[in-house]
């Protein structure tokens, strides 16, 4: 498939995705073969199920970061037949960092969710084993190494 066909089919793909899930707030092609889909937390489980079970995308990892507007969770999946990396971007409020655990849908996601709990203090509801994962046993509670120390509103 050449570049142009590729772009055409991704446009079809995006419009199809938007029809299927009208809650999607924004879809952007961030780079060559990289797609980012911004969604509210309410449809996270649905789209994850659609991608993982129906389209057979391969689960890669979840990136989490503390950005200006909240905690960003980015679920990366790969469509190996075309080489595209599809990412789901969920924004969580700083004052209420909770989200549904995706472990019941994607088994492999268990570890990374526990890791994010450790490093950013995000709560995953219905996680099968919400225990400390990476940090030492005597690490102080409430100290999350990847949270930004100073936020804009604190200044």
């Amino acid at each position: 498939m050449n570049e142009k066909d590729n772009l055409m089919s991704i446009e079809n793909y995006i419009s199809d995705l938007k029809i299927r899930f009208p809650q999607i707030t924004n879809v952007e092609v961030i780079n060559v073969k990289r797609l980012m889909v911004h969604i509210p937390t309410s449809v996270l489980a649905q789209i994850t199920g659609y991608w993982f079970n129906e389209l057979n995308y391969r689960y890669i990892i979840v990136s989490a970061m503390d950005s200006k507007d909240g905690f960003e969770l980015i679920y990366h999946y790969s469509d190996d037949s075309s080489g595209w990396i599809m990412s789901l971007n969920v924004m969580l409020a700083h004052n209420e960092p909770t989200v549904e655990s995706m472990t019941p849908i994607v088994y492999g996601i268990e570890w990374i969710e526990r890791e994010i709990m450790d490093i950013l203090g995000i709560q995953f509801l219905n996680h099968p084993k919400p225990e400390r994962f990476l940090l030492p046993e005597n690490w102080p509670e409430g100290n999350y190494p990847y949270r930004r120390k100073i936020r804009k509103e604190d200044r």
């Binding site: 073969k33 057979n56 391969r58 689960y59 890669i60 990892i61 790969s78 190996d80 037949s81 075309s82 080489g83 595209w84 990396i85 994607v106 088994y107 492999g108």
Partner: peptide, 24 residues
């Protein structure tokens, strides 16, 4: 597929993935 395993582990189970070919 469930665990998202990759590389020789996946290829030994008949899952035909390789980043070098899929996304050169």
């Amino acid at each position: 597929h469930d665990f998202g395993a990759v590389g020789p582990t996946a290829r030994a189970s008949g899952v035909d993935i390789d980043v070098r070919r899929d996304d050169p």
